[in-house]
Design a protein around this nucleic acid. Structure first.
Lengths: 241, 241
DNA sequence: CGACGCCTTGAACGATGTCAACGTGCGTGG
DNA sequence: CCACGCACGTTGACATCGTTCAAGGCGTCG
């Protein structure tokens, strides 16, 4: 937090960044005030409403972004329309596929999302000049790879009930990364259809499994989006742990 | 190839590396002769027979490796024994999870495998000193992430028939990365059980789908391991493309 | 109030899993 | 060299889980 205070009094830190929740998180955390200044010359903050497509599956990428708040879903679609969500991104994740013009996934705002974007070229030049930046990027990418592989186990080997429980657990941990208590309540960042697309199930099966968890008193469903988990370890068991 | 010729006459290039098929591929491709020399002081080449565990799921990593030849399978297991293969690695992939003591996956030789290993500490010091090395690592990690996400679509949304076809296609492309022709023949690097664990199916279902592809003349099964694909585009269709 | 989006519930169906028998190739020991 | 056992794969009959299709509930907005 000392660094943060310093920034406040450091006239070099761009105004845009000084108030930014992610100034010291994600890739920006690797930058000095001077570097930040350079990047911020070209960056812009935007608020994007839920449902907006940020990046198309086969569109050229022209900019990168940092997620300031909200949830972004990454998905892939087959020719006949079958869809699979292949990842969720939260603040302060970096959004975009470096060193490739094509993307391979489409990114869509699941909730309202705030991002800070900069042009591809500027970002790539800075990456090549700053090992620290690339290191951060590698670190995030390795984490995403770990998460993707965890999810492959879920997709390939878990039952519908375990899948739904795993999903709730995932959201709970990401919504409150350092929650120590045994209970949480949170808002689901997406619809039943999206959850189904994330779990490789149908909407109906997701719905049935949620009511099953509710009837077994593992969760409380306040309304369609709001969920209480009184006993996280019990939910963990249901997820196959 | 000029670089390679130079190496042959360059007494600085370690003998171990001079004859190495991966000298100019993978992470080693990022190194100069001098750097290679430094790394090779601590590296050792080993041949590992099929079925040997290289890294345990929760064991501390003490070394990293480059795959020289063969196929390594990465897998995760649930408490009750259900298993999911979450990735296959081929030469010249880098094996090991940098910047983490725990692994999260276990690595096992699917075929006979040749690797070149070096101690964790040496590798990590070199990474921190050489941006080029870290760049290569980021590049490979991004590729693995892309592949993991492709596979999530396969696991979550494809039918058993499409899954098996996708698997054959994956092996075909990795066994012959730059095959231009419409036909291939190759040896499957793993058993039916392993294939099932990769596809999130049972061995029986894999077997049935393979015979179905054979009866439909999409593939020829020479013996349990040897497969001919006379018409790759036709196999692609079966895979959902 | 009606229409619409989103979700839930029910009933029937179908794809994949389970369980068990059988086949095939291969190495080992008689 | 054969007989046997064993590992691996195939095939069949049946069970099960998740999907499909269809109806209905609930909240919101015009």
């Amino acid at each position: 937090m000392d660094i943060h205070r310093k920034d406040v009094h450091n006239s070099n830190t761009p105004a845009l960044c000084r108030a930014c929740e992610s100034r010291h998180r994600g890739v920006c955390g690797a930058l000095t005030s001077e570097q930040l200044l350079r990047l911020s010359k070209h960056s812009s903050r935007r608020t994007i409403e839920a449902g907006t497509e940020l990046v198309g599956e086969s569109t050229k990428v022209k900019s990168y972004s940092n997620i300031i708040s909200g949830v972004v879903k990454l998905s892939k679609m087959m020719a006949d329309g079958r869809q699979q969500i292949v990842g969720l991104q939260f603040a302060p994740d970096f959004l975009g596929r470096p060193f490739r013009s094509e993307n391979g996934v489409s990114a869509e705002a699941a909730t309202e999302v705030k991002v800070c974007s900069f042009p591809k070229a500027v970002m790539e030049r800075m990456i090549s000049e700053m090992p620290e930046l690339e290191h951060k990027l590698l670190d995030q990418t390795l984490n995403e790879l770990d998460e993707a592989r965890d999810w492959m186990l879920t997709l390939g080997r878990k039952t519908a009930g375990e899948k739904v429980a795993s999903f709730l657990l995932l959201i709970a941990t990401h919504a409150y990364p350092d929650n120590e208590a045994d209970s949480v309540e949170f808002e689901l960042p997406m619809s039943r259809v999206d959850i189904a697309d994330f779990l490789g199930l149908t909407m109906e099966t997701v719905s049935r499994q949620l009511t099953k968890l509710r009837k077994d008193d593992v969760i409380r469903i306040v309304n369609n989006r709001q969920v209480d988990v009184p006993d996280i370890p019990r939910l963990s068991e249901r997820a196959g742990f």
